[in-house]
Design a protein around this nucleic acid. Structure first.
Length: 556
RNA sequence: UGCCCGAUAGUAUAAUGGUAGUACGACUGUUUUUGGUGCAGUUUGUCUAGGUUCGAAUCCUGGUCGGGCAACCA
């Protein structure tokens, strides 16, 4: 293992355990999603942590679906979770389900009852909540706390057999109603839920609570390091209480701070609202921070893994700059994306000294970052071209390196041109720009000796194809929507999506492949969307390029 | 006003009693047939008040601030 990067606190714990010979040097972690939604980038952090730590220390990682609440869970989610983890580049040792352990868990509950450490309570949810007291006042026992062991056994069996309706009874651990830790005030172990489970069907009508399932599941699998997020810190004493009293394998729980990124939200509940209330088109909307959304947006597994590595792991609350995620995807795509030319806001450019009707085939390397360019494609050139409207200024600003009356630029992969004149339509909008080209300046065999400051992209008008382009921006207008007054949805960015219905694309882009990143030169990184058809390609903008000129303009 | 967790540049994250460093961002310069990339550089920080110590970001005490905990959710 490389020691270049310093260890995070979890790696320190593990190295210490390893040097103490704990568990015979065996490391087994687990990733335990509840299949009630799609995975998001926060889960990606956890996945990279759990799988990454195991990989680093020659251990393994189980995938365990924490499916103890049938009313919120579904196989649709199981499938998407599996796909997302694989896509991120990780392989699990075993695929398991908390529901695999329902029989064992039931037996565990019975033994606790026999030890006098659990009881059936007939109180309503409200009564139990009221009797729990408050953080500053101790709780009181309900009348059912003193039931005999025999009665509890009989009642719990009846609960299991389906004799009672939902909510009629619960099974609680008998711990300490005065504990300063609310989680220890006789927590619920089982509730009655006559619901169909996506794996166990109708076999059960009682289901264990998280606290009675998670630690024991870890112990059954002999998980050595059970890594979860900070909100479970107060649950840890309970996790240990069950393991201790049931005399199980001593799995240990460790907690880290969950990921937050600015200008988005990161809770399944909120993401579900965005989907259900149609603020986005689905879980995989490219604006969503879900793994499937990021994938569709054009993010690569490597960029997300690198991101997870760079943000680090600690126990303090954090709000990561979106710019770091963007840096990570640019870093990867810069090295892998194929360059293409696309004009999004076109204006006609006519080269008056180039033979009308002539077509010349230019060559453009696919990837200048790689030796050999990963091959090349041909780009037709002719006397009529489309260029970007903002690559021309009637009255050029200072430090403007593009076209303007009398100015010269290079057409990427082609010739240097000089602007002669321009024409406006009746609305005052520039409709045509006339230039002359310098024949000796052809790209690759330039003998003109002329140096120009600017290079612009273009597409030949003859035979030009079009595509729909979807430009995405941050989903929210504020950095931390969850911490603002009122409903977080009030802070949605109304301009998070803008569509260019017919951008002009160079001919080769008709052959664009699904899953590949493209850099539209000077514009950004793009990828083909699933909505594409052969007649109508659709591209998603993954991220813009850094734009020093835009910053210059902004500064005034 | 109980218990628990935390506090280092704008944002993250190191330094584990001995030179406060790294990344992103921002800014400068340089290279460039992408105002991209690359390269070089600049910028900004230990919450606070005490204590221990030759020496404290680090250990101790008080305070302040932020977060979590009283779902038949996970």
């Amino acid at each position: 293992m490389s020691e270049e990067r310093s260890l995070n606190f979890l790696e320190e714990i593990i190295e210490e355990d390893l040097s103490n010979g704990k568990h015979g040097g065996r490391i087994l972690t687990r990733f335990p999603p509840e299949p009630n939604g799609y995975l998001h980038i926060g889960h990606a952090k956890s996945i990279c942590l759990n799988f990454g730590i195991a990989r680093k220390y020659n251990g393994k990682t189980n995938l365990r679906f924490d499916d103890t609440n049938p009313s919120t869970e579904d196989v649709e989610y199981v499938d998407s979770i599996r796909e997302d983890i694989k896509w991120l580049g990780f392989e699990w040792e075993k695929e398991l389900y908390s529901s695999d352990y329902f029989d064992k868990l039931y037996d565990f509950a019975m033994s606790l009852i026999r030890m006098g450490l659990a009881y059936v309570d007939d109180s309503t949810a409200e009564e139990i909540a009221a009797a729990k007291g408050s953080p500053t006042e101790p709780g009181r026992p309900t009348p059912y706390r003193s039931r005999s062991i025999e009665e509890n056994i009989a009642l719990f069996e009846e609960m299991k057999s389906g004799k009672y309706p939902d909510g009629a009874k619960v099974l609680r651990a008998k711990i300490d109603l005065a504990s300063p830790n609310m989680h220890l005030r006789d927590p619920l172990m089982y509730r009655i839920k006559h619901a169909h489970h996506h794996r166990t069907g109708d076999k059960w009508c009682i289901y264990p609570m998280y606290d009675f399932a998670h630690g024991q599941s870890d112990a059954i699998e002999e998980i050595t390091h059970s890594i979860c997020t900070l909100e479970f810190v107060p649950h840890r004493p309970l996790y240990e209480w069950f393991i201790e009293h049931l005399n199980l394998f001593p799995s240990r729980q460790y907690e880290f701070a969950r990921l937050n990124i600015n200008y988005t939200v990161m809770s399944k509940r909120k993401l579900l609202q965005l989907v259900n209330e149609k603020y986005v088109t689905g879980w995989d909307d490219p604006r969503m921070p879900t793994i499937s959304g990021l994938r569709r947006r054009g993010y690569t597994p490597l960029s997300i893994r690198n991101f997870a590595e760079r943000i680090g792991v600690a126990k303090r609350e954090n709000l990561i700059d979106l710019s770091l995620l963007e840096f990570c995807i640019r870093e990867d795509l810069n090295k892998t994306a194929w360059r293409r030319m696309v004009v999004m806001d076109p204006v006609k450019l006519i080269i008056s000294n180039y033979p009308e009707g002539q077509i010349e085939l230019m060559e453009g390397e696919n990837n200048p970052e790689v030796e050999g360019g990963e091959g090349s494609r041909t780009i037709p050139f002719s006397s009529e071209l489309w260029i970007e409207r903002d690559d021309f200024m009637e009255e050029p600003a200072k430090k403007y390196f593009r076209l303007g009356p009398g100015l010269m630029v290079r057409l990427k992969h082609a010739y240097i041109i000089q602007c002669e004149r321009f024409v406006k339509d009746e609305t005052g909008k520039i409709s045509e720009i006339y230039c002359t080209y310098i024949p000796e300046s052809r790209s690759g065999s330039d003998t003109s000796g002329i140096n120009v400051k600017g290079t612009i992209h273009w597409v030949s008008a003859a035979g030009a194809k079009t595509a729909e382009i979807r430009l995405y921006d941050r989903l929210f207008r504020v950095e931390d929507p969850s911490n603002e007054e009122g409903d977080f949805k009030e802070y949605i960015n109304p301009d998070s999506l803008s569509v260019i219905s017919s951008a002009i694309i160079e001919p080769d882009l008709i052959n664009a492949e699904q899953g590949r990143g493209y850099q539209f030169i000077r514009k950004g990184y793009f990828t083909l969307d699933v909505d594409s058809s052969p007649e109508k390609p659709v591209f998603n903008r993954t991220v813009t390029l850094k734009d020093a000129w835009a910053r210059e303009v902004k500064k005034g």
